[in-house]
Design a protein around this nucleic acid. Structure first.
Lengths: 223, 223
DNA sequence: TCAAAAATATGAGATATCTCATATTATTTG
DNA sequence: CAAATAATATGAGATATCTCATATTTTTGA
């Protein structure tokens, strides 16, 4: 983890101003943090000292259960907040957040800014929208996970993450995200290949029948 | 559904003032709605015209999937907001909300108040907290549903809803809530009886071994 | 550069959960 | 009050998913 200083910091803040998200100046105590792939931005169970706002990169929210299972709760992208739960709630079990690419965030020391932030309508309005989307998304994932087998959820995930018709996510990550065992994921992927929806190319999977996957994914959606 | 008028309305609003939730007066266009058990406060797929605040009663949030399965996403209680998603987001699939007891809510016409509400830090702060709790809860339920079998989740649910040592929820509701089939729920309940955790009394279940259920439920929690 | 660790791969048996069929009992409603 | 509807109940077979064992390949770090 690197904290930008001096000219580097000044330049970065200038190029990526977030002044429009607040109705008071936040630059004074704000820091710029850069995390490398696999760095932990927040450690599970340990309260963060900052409210983060992601400028670039991708990260993952993890929670570890008592039975050892790990859930990848969600992905975090540019323009997302991190640590907002801890800003708002005095009692909160902090989830782990791990960078999955180089990730740069602005970091507002909660200690300094908490009071002002909680009185700033502009900030709160944005955060409220962010949280409403988050809550909705979790509700959707929750109810889908209970109502549909992996086949449907995986089809959706493949379509969402495929890059130019090629799916190449890490199996291990996907297991944690879709909440199934490694074995079962591989099993369903093999089925997709057998049915001709996908074609395996070394470590990647080429989408062969878009419409079949689409059909499977479509039933998740509410119209 | 009944809309309170005149003296009845005035009295009710006076006894249950929510003026402290806003920094501007909301009484003028506010309505008081009373719903009977099984009334739909909001119909699935149809945008509501009000932001509701629940004063008394209980309700359930439902979503219907394309495969016909119904998920009971969550329960709503006094001091919860309803319709906040629609206030915040222009595009949103509205979930169904059904009263499960007589439920009385204050209803703020979005049309009149939207702009002011979105600029009111006091209101937004409360709503933000409400949403953060909601998002956290959904995330917890989501990851638990994937990481643990019904046995654990049911034990937790029984402990949470039992009334003086007696569990008497409707099976059908619980199926929708825990996302399992009726058959399987009954199966696990029978197991609990066989193991001596519960004892069936007519339509209810008496808790016999608190600690066993507690043990099963405990592994869901993060410490 | 080599050993350790992580990721991929596959088989086989176990179990959690679902679907469907069917019966009985309670509750609601015209 | 009777008929319709909802809730409870149980059996049996199907399937989705898990666990464990084990092997190979790739990536990583000292």
């Amino acid at each position: 983890m690197e904290i930008y200083k001096g000219e580097k910091k000044r330049l970065y803040m200038e190029k990526n101003s977030i002044a429009h998200l607040f109705s008071f100046p936040v630059e004074e105590f704000m820091e710029v943090h850069e995390y490398q792939r696999d760095d932990w931005i927040i450690q599970e169970g340990r309260r963060p000292d900052f409210l983060f706002y992601v400028i670039e990169g991708k990260a993952k929210i993890y929670i570890t259960h008592q039975n050892g299972k790990v859930s990848l709760i969600n992905f975090i992208n540019a323009n997302d907040y991190i640590g907002e739960m801890e800003l708002l709630n005095d009692v909160y079990y902090t989830k782990g957040i791990q960078a999955s690419t180089k990730t740069i965030c602005f970091a507002l020391p909660i200690h300094y800014y908490r009071k002002q932030l909680l009185e700033d309508a502009k900030f709160l309005r944005e955060l409220t929208k962010f949280l409403s989307v988050k809550a909705t998304l979790m509700a959707a994932k929750y109810s889908q996970s209970l109502a549909f087998p992996l086949e449907n959820r995986l089809a959706d995930f493949i379509l969402q993450t495929a890059d130019e018709g090629v799916y190449k996510e890490k199996h291990v990550t996907v297991c944690d995200y879709l909440g199934v065992s490694y074995r079962h994921l591989l099993h369903v992927l093999t089925q997709f290949c057998d049915k001709g929806y996908l074609q395996k190319n070394g470590r990647n999977y080429q989408i062969k029948q878009y419409h079949s996957l689409h059909e499977l994914a479509e039933v998740l959606k509410n119209k």
